[in-house]
C-alpha cells in the first residue's frame, strides 16, 4: 500500500475528524485490535483530536499530534503503523516467516504459504487458528520485532493444508515509504 508514497504529491489534505466519527473509529479500533482502552487512551487521548490525512487511492492515514497511528483502505480494517505495532506488539495475532522470506518482504512482496509453514516459520496452533481476512503482525525467524503487517488471505489451517500461493497480503513493511514518516 505504501510501496510508493511521497507526502508532497500523494496527500490530498488534512482534515480534523468530527468527534462523533472519532468515537466510531475508537470503537472500531478497540474491537479490531487486542488493545486495552487505557493503553489506547495513553497513545490517543480523548482530548487530542484525530486528524484524517487523505491520500491517493482511498488510503486514509489517521494521525494524532501529527504522528501517524493507523491507516485504512476504503472502509477496511484499521492497520496500525509499524512503529505503533513495535511499541505494542501484542495488539495483533502474529505469524512468522522464515529467514529466507525476510528479503522479499522488505522489498514489499506478499507472504507466500511455504515461508510460513517451513521450519523457520510459525503459525498459531489449531486452537488459536486465525481465519481468513484478518490483520496479522508478520514476525521473522530469529527476530524480536515485527517486520511487517498484513491481512491473511487464507485461514491459518488452510495455509498449512494448501501450502501454495499468497498467505498474507502485506499492507506495510519495514522500509516502505510510510516507515520514514515520523510525522505527517
Amino acid at each position: 500500500m505504501f510501496k510508493k508514497f511521497s507526502p508532497s504529491t500523494d496527500i490530498a489534505g488534512h482534515t480534523p475528524v468530527k468527534t462523533s466519527v472519532q468515537r466510531q473509529i475508537r470503537a472500531g479500533v478497540l474491537s479490531q485490535w487486542k488493545i486495552e482502552p487505557e493503553t489506547l487512551e495513553a497513545v490517543w487521548p480523548k482530548k487530542e483530536g484525530l486528524v484524517h490525512v487523505k491520500c491517493r487511492e482511498h488510503v486514509s492515514v489517521y494521525t494524532v499530534n501529527s504522528e501517524p497511528l493507523f491507516f485504512q483502505h476504503f472502509d477496511g480494517p484499521f492497520y496500525p503503523t509499524l512503529r505503533f505495532l513495535h511499541k505494542y506488539p501484542y495488539i495483533l495475532p502474529k505469524v512468522q516467516v522464515d529467514r529466507g522470506a525476510i528479503r522479499f518482504l522488505l522489498a514489499g512482496a506478499h507472504m507466500m504459504c511455504p515461508g510460513l509453514t517451513s521450519a523457520g516459520g510459525w503459525l498459531p496452533p489449531v486452537e488459536d487458528a486465525i481465519p481468513a481476512e484478518r490483520l496479522v503482525a508478520i514476525h521473522a525467524e530469529g527476530k524480536e520485532h515485527a517486520v511487517g503487517l498484513g491481512i491473511t488471505k487464507l485461514s491459518t489451517e488452510d495455509i498449512k493444508k494448501v501450502n501454495k500461493g499468497v498467505a498474507v497480503e502485506t499492507a506495510t513493511y519495514l522500509g516502505d515509504d510510510l516507515w520514514p514518516l515520523k510525522t505527517l
Partner: peptide
C-alpha cells in the same frame, strides 16, 4: 494502568530496528 510501550531501539543510520 495503560501498558507501557515497548522501547525499540532503532538504528540511527538506516532507521530499522
Amino acid at each position: 494502568e495503560p501498558t507501557p510501550p515497548v522501547q525499540v531501539l532503532y538504528c540511527q543510520v538506516c532507521s530499522f530496528p
